[in-house]
Amino acid sequence: MFTSNGGGIDVSNIKVNGKSADYDVNGTALHITGVSLKKAAQANVSMEFSAAVFCFFVPSQ
């Protein structure tokens, strides 16, 4: 995810309301699957992630 220009993010251990959840990464979108919520319901989502940020630095002259 976010691999252009050397950056990236890895996600794992996704939980919805304390229960492990399946997920799919499509480009820059994270889709949590197999979970259904009633209309207007709230959920607590937790995950572990690590991110690498590409920094392009041009020194001033």
Results as ranks from 00 to 15, higher is better:
Lys38Pro: 07
Gln42Lys: 14
Thr33Pro: 07
Glu48Tyr: 10
Thr28Gln: 06
Val11Asn: 04
Thr3Ile: 09
Leu37Arg: 04
Met47Thr: 05
His31Ile: 11
Gly7His: 03
Ala29Arg: 11
Ser50Gly: 15
Asp10Gln: 15
Gly34Arg: 11
Met47Phe: 15
Asn17Glu: 02
Ser12Tyr: 07
Gly8Gln: 09
Val11Met: 02
Gly34Ser: 10
Ala29Gly: 02
Ser36His: 10
Asn44Leu: 06
Phe2Arg: 11
Val35Gln: 12
Ala29Phe: 04
Thr33Glu: 14
Phe2Asp: 07
Thr3His: 13
Ser20Phe: 03
Ile9Arg: 00
Ile32Arg: 06
Asn44Gln: 12
Asn26Gly: 01
Gly6Asn: 11
Phe2Gln: 10
Asp24Ala: 15
Asn5Lys: 13
Lys39Gly: 03
Leu37Thr: 03
Phe49Tyr: 15
Gly34Pro: 00
Phe49Cys: 07
Asp10Ala: 13
Ser46Val: 14
Val11Pro: 01
Asn5Cys: 05
Met1Ser: 03
Ser50Lys: 15
Ala21Cys: 06
Ala41Pro: 04
Gly6Lys: 12
Asn5Gly: 04
Lys38Leu: 10
Ile32Met: 07
Ser20His: 06
Val45Arg: 00
Tyr23Lys: 05
Met47Ser: 11
Tyr23Leu: 05
Ala41Ile: 03
His31Tyr: 06
Gly7Met: 05
Ser36Asn: 14
Ser50His: 11
Lys15Asp: 04
Ile32Ser: 03
Gly7Thr: 02
Thr28Phe: 02
Phe49Ile: 07
Gln42Trp: 04
Phe49Leu: 15
Gly34Asn: 12
Leu37Asn: 02
Ala41Trp: 05
Phe2Thr: 08
Asn5Tyr: 14
Val11Ile: 15
Ser4Pro: 05
Gly34Asp: 08
Gly34Cys: 09
Ala51Lys: 10
Leu30Asn: 02
Ala29Asp: 13
Asp22Tyr: 07
Val25Asn: 04
Phe2Met: 05
Lys39Val: 09
Asn17Trp: 06
Ala41Arg: 07
Phe49Lys: 12
Asp10Asn: 11
Asp24Ile: 11
Ser36Gly: 12
Gly18Asn: 13
Phe49Asp: 04
Met1Cys: 03
Lys15His: 05
Thr28Met: 03
Ala29Pro: 00
Met47Val: 08
